[in-house]
């Protein structure tokens, strides 16, 4: 049956709308991981492009494809975007071959943000496994601002010391009042820090569980471990947020590839409260 248009064309966002950007700077972070600062070709588009900490973009390399990558820059830093990317597939390998001045298309932002605007009277504990810290950097920069939260802590775990991310920024975060602690699986002879799982850092980081919010991003089993330990320590299940990663083609809850139980990770996530996903995360191969 012919039907009247329920949404006027001009008033909704076409999820396939791309924006052309150029790589303005590339920073080598760790082996195989680089940060790309992107500047919009059209300054007006750049000015209008706003995102919230924790959201992601689809980065497109023509002829190669798209990948969903979290935005790592400060949301207040209008006009440019920073994405920290590990070269692990077709698209991210193609990104790794690009240089300053090369073209990358962006569409977004998509997904749910970290709840950093709702933690004014709370202790916020960021827990990141490996590259998971890239999805949290925007929110950490927000949490470091006076008045955002009572206290912010960053707990970062990695396989090896060389895989710890953004190490050059920890001093600045600490000067802003953020506690930063790191831990690695395998330290090696030059490592003076702690060895073990990132969950081991929670004991010292949470001292008022009723007023603590945990924000976690990393591999699924690590996030479950963090969430369950936080609950054991007295953190409320509705104060624990995880950022999930799934492969997706559209980011608009149409392609179905990122489904996790009844959730579309692209639209309902990537940041999801643990009470919505805890049971699902314990089902093998969901």
């Amino acid at each position: 049956m012919t039907m009247a248009s329920p949404w006027p064309t001009a008033s909704h966002i076409d999820p396939w709308q791309t924006h052309s950007t150029r790589i303005a700077a590339i920073a080598d972070e760790t082996e195989g991981v680089r940060s790309y600062r992107l500047r919009f070709d059209d300054a007006a588009v750049g000015d209008a492009f706003r995102f919230a900490a924790g959201q992601f973009n689809m980065l497109y390399v023509p002829g190669v494809g798209e990948a969903a990558i979290s935005i790592s820059s400060d949301p207040e830093d209008v006009g440019t975007l920073t994405h920290t990317v590990r070269a692990v597939g077709n698209v991210t390998d193609a990104l790794a071959r690009l240089t300053v001045g090369d073209q990358v298309f962006v569409r977004g932002p998509f997904g749910t943000p970290w709840p950093v605007d709702r933690v004014m009277d709370r202790d916020v504990v960021f827990v990141a496994g490996g590259l998971g810290l890239a999805s949290q950097r925007s929110a950490i920069l927000r949490a470091a601002l006076p008045g955002t939260c009572r206290h912010a802590t960053v707990l970062h775990g990695a396989k090896r010391p060389g895989e710890l991310l953004y190490t050059g920024e920890y001093d600045a975060w600490r000067r802003a009042g953020v506690t930063v602690a790191t831990i690695v699986d395998e330290g090696g002879p030059a490592w003076n820090g702690r060895c073990g799982l990132v969950t081991a850092l929670l004991d010292d980081a949470i001292d008022d569980p009723a007023r603590t919010t945990v924000l976690c991003c990393g591999p699924d089993p690590m996030m479950v471990g963090v969430a369950e330990k936080a609950i054991d320590m007295g953190v409320s299940i509705d104060a624990i947020f995880l950022s999930l990663e799934r492969t997706m083609a559209c980011a608009a809850a149409h392609c179905g590839l990122c489904q996790f139980g009844p959730l579309f990770v692209c639209r309902d996530g990537p940041v999801l409260r643990y009470d919505r996903i805890g049971l699902l995360m314990k089902v093998p191969r969901l």
Binding site: H12, P15, A252, A253
Partner: peptide, 22 residues
């Protein structure tokens, strides 16, 4: 509901759906 009523609108679907005679 999937392509039009899910927060995002799929333009390709909508273009065909709006003009469909059944």
């Amino acid at each position: 509901r999937v392509f039009l009523g899910n927060g995002f609108v799929d333009e390709a679907y909508r273009s065909r759906r709006e003009r469909l005679f059944l």
